[in-house]
């Protein structure tokens, strides 16, 4: 926001000739539901396959990019693609039932058709993180974007320092990806810590809110970078903890969620100042968006 007034605000920037891209950014691809996985009482995971010959092979995205999913007749909503880019058999989305579109997505069964506009938005700049220790922090449904970057990093773990994960949920029953947690806990390249706010008697892992547990784990800020996704309140306090631990604002990476409609930087819903979450985000450093957290 700082260097706004450097150019004259009076003159419109010139219109550069630009070829019309062949695609219509409002027109979804169709995709068929392959699988529906019940994660928690409110979260389901959909695995979908893009329709058309080679459509999955031709589809490329980077970890952190999002999709607008359509249930025709109900509408669209935005979700991160939480399978890693190497997964070419399907695209995976985890969806918490909150509003109309998510309710309709929860009702889908295998074989049904949905619309997908993707990939949209920016992504985790993992190529800039080579050699660094990566502290991944996911809270609740915020584990979805963390999952895609985590799996992507683990595929190339030798390029990075220590990769660690702190995944927190309200209760053990609110943890998604339970069928994968055992693998994550014993993964040779991952230091995995699970926590819940409220435990039941046979919970073997940490108990406490994510910021508290993080304080206890006290990861070193040296040559390290933190990636955190979760509900706004968790982000707020976890950022504070990371700053207290000595992480610089530019080494804290988070994703912002806003209501979106067009997904292509026009409709005016998701902007924070002059930046649009749908095209400039959803991935931002804490330095870029601290004022808006």
């Amino acid at each position: 926001m700082a260097d706004i007034a450097k150019t004259s605000p009076r003159m419109l920037k010139g219109l550069a000739p630009r070829p019309m891209p062949s695609g219509n950014p409002y027109l979804p691809q169709t995709a068929r539901v392959l699988d529906v996985i019940r994660e928690t009482a409110t979260i389901k995971t959909l695995r979908v396959v893009l329709e058309g010959e080679d459509a999955m092979q031709r589809f490329h995205f980077e970890p952190g990019q999002v999709a607008q999913l359509s249930v025709f007749g109900v509408g669209e909503a935005t979700f991160v693609i939480n399978s890693p880019p190497s997964q070419k058999d399907y695209l995976q989305f985890s969806i918490m039932e909150v509003g109309e579109v998510t309710r309709a997505l929860h009702r889908l069964t295998a074989g049904e058709l949905i619309g997908v506009r993707a990939p949209l938005g920016n992504f985790f700049p993992y190529a800039d993180w080579l050699g660094k220790n990566i502290v991944l922090i996911g809270g609740g449904i915020g584990m979805a974007p963390v999952r895609t970057i985590m799996l992507h990093l683990l595929e190339r773990a030798s390029d990075y320092g220590q990769i660690s994960l702190l995944y927190g949920a309200r209760t053990p029953k609110d943890m998604s990806y339970q069928y994968e947690l055992a693998d994550w806990l014993k993964h040779k390249d991952l230091a995995c810590c699970l926590c819940v706010d409220k435990a039941d008697s046979d919970w073997p892992h940490k108990v406490g809110m994510v910021p508290e547990v993080l304080k206890e784990l006290a990861p070193s800020p040296q040559n390290s970078l933190a990636v955190l996704c979760g509900p706004p309140i968790m982000i707020k306090y976890t950022v504070e903890t990371l700053l207290n631990l000595g992480f610089a604002e530019e080494n804290i990476v988070t994703t912002l969620e806003r209501r979106m409609k067009c997904g292509i930087g026009i409709c005016g819903r998701c902007n924070v100042g002059s930046r649009y979450v749908c095209t400039d985000g959803p991935v931002f450093t804490c330095r870029e968006v601290r004022a808006f957290l």
């Binding site: 419109l12 219109l15 950014p25 292509i264 930087g265 026009i266 095209t279």
Partner: peptide, 17 residues
């Protein structure tokens, strides 16, 4: 119109409509 042209025609995506 000139002001609308920028976000609709010159952004990351061109609005075909």
């Amino acid at each position: 119109f000139a002001i609308l042209d920028r976000p609709f025609l010159q952004g990351l995506f061109r609005d075909p409509y």
